[in-house]
């Protein structure tokens, strides 16, 4: 074998290997793009349909010959105007905002304290309690609302959004506590020992060390509580019936669907406006949300 052949053979093999690597990477990319675009279309079609419908006039929607996916007569903000001026939408929005802010606050106070105790303080039965709290999360609200009705009624909070402030935390606290337990447990124990030696008590340790360090987890839990509280449907459906106390989810549906008459334009406009606050919050805090969830998840 000559030196020339000895050097060319491996280099040819290397080029071939390189080319096939490139080709397989290209195919992987094409496949990924194909499915990602498919998913994007699938998930973006409903919001697109909502926007298009919300921007149409009632006469256009009534005309059967127009294509529902496009605006034929030009976009109009009439649906939004009527919704805000002639319906109780703003009252629903205000009620929802009050309920959600209070529920998030209550949830965070309870679940941060509970998670700190269950995740960091070693005491008899703490792990069983932690599991128990998570199990309560597995009971769906469609089962809970009947006994809950009795409780809310006994407290005189039926048909009052204050009742929601009381019952929503039963949905949010267990999961938020569970996320926070995972997060607190992932913080090295030397950190509280260092704080103990530095002279911190348990409350100082929580407020000055644990809450700042666990902020991504806390924000993830807050987003979860916000979403659950903003989008809750079963409880307001069961416990609220006058429109001055109603929240967005149920209020929009009950006031804009009368018998078999669906006010599609306003329904879509209302849904879009209702979806805006969670969307804004997700957009700003998404990174924290993912960091918080994964940190809790990987620490088994």
């Amino acid at each position: 074998m000559t030196p020339a052949t000895a050097t060319t053979a491996p280099s040819a093999a290397r080029t071939n290997g390189h080319a096939s690597l490139k080709r397989s990477r290209r195919w992987a990319l094409y496949t990924s793009y194909f499915f990602l675009i498919l998913f994007a279309i699938f998930f973006l079609a409903p919001p697109y349909y909502m926007i298009v419908t919300a921007l149409k006039s009632d006469p256009e929607m009534a005309r059967m010959e127009t294509n529902p996916w496009f605006i034929a007569d030009g976009a109009t903000l009439d649906q939004f105007r009527i919704l805000l001026a002639n319906t109780d939408f703003l009252i629903f929005f205000k009620n929802t905002a009050i309920v959600t802010v209070l529920v998030v606050a209550i949830t965070m106070v309870i679940s941060v304290l509970a998670a700190f105790a269950l995740g960091r303080m070693r005491f008899w039965g703490s792990s069983i309690l932690a599991t128990g709290i998570f199990l309560t999360y597995l009971v769906p609200d469609t089962l809970l609302f009947i006994p809950m009705f009795q409780i809310v009624k006994a407290l005189g909070l039926l048909n009052s959004y204050w009742g929601m402030v009381l019952v929503y935390p039963t949905l949010t606290v267990p999961f938020c506590t569970w996320i926070m337990i995972g997060y607190f447990q992932s913080i090295p124990k030397e950190l509280d020992e260092a704080a103990l030696i530095d002279g911190a008590g348990h409350i100082q340790m929580l407020t000055r060390i644990f809450i700042p360090v666990a902020l991504p987890g806390i924000i993830a839990a807050m987003i979860f509580a916000f979403t659950v509280s903003w989008a809750a449907f079963v409880y307001p459906m069961a416990f609220l019936y006058s429109s001055d106390q109603q929240v967005l989810t149920v209020g929009t549906v009950t006031s804009l669907i009368r018998g078999d008459v669906y006010k599609w334009g306003m329904l879509m406009a209302g849904a879009l406006l209702a979806a805006a606050p969670p969307l804004v919050i997700y957009a700003f805090l998404m990174d924290y949300y993912i960091a918080g969830l994964t940190a809790g998840a990987t620490k088994g």
């Binding site: 090295p188 030397e190 950190l191 020992e193 260092a194 704080a195 103990l196 030696i197 530095d198 002279g199 911190a200 000055r208 060390i209 700042p212 360090v213 902020l215």
Partner: peptide
């Protein structure tokens, strides 16, 4: 006596610095 009343200071294997504080704040915390 709890650790804070023993007038001791401890250096840990994994440093145990408070990650959200600057070096100054870490040293000043106690």
């Amino acid at each position: 006596l709890p650790p804070k009343d023993r007038d001791i200071a401890m250096v840990f294997q994994n440093y145990a610095l408070y990650p959200h504080m600057t070096s100054f704040e870490n040293m000043a915390f106690g």
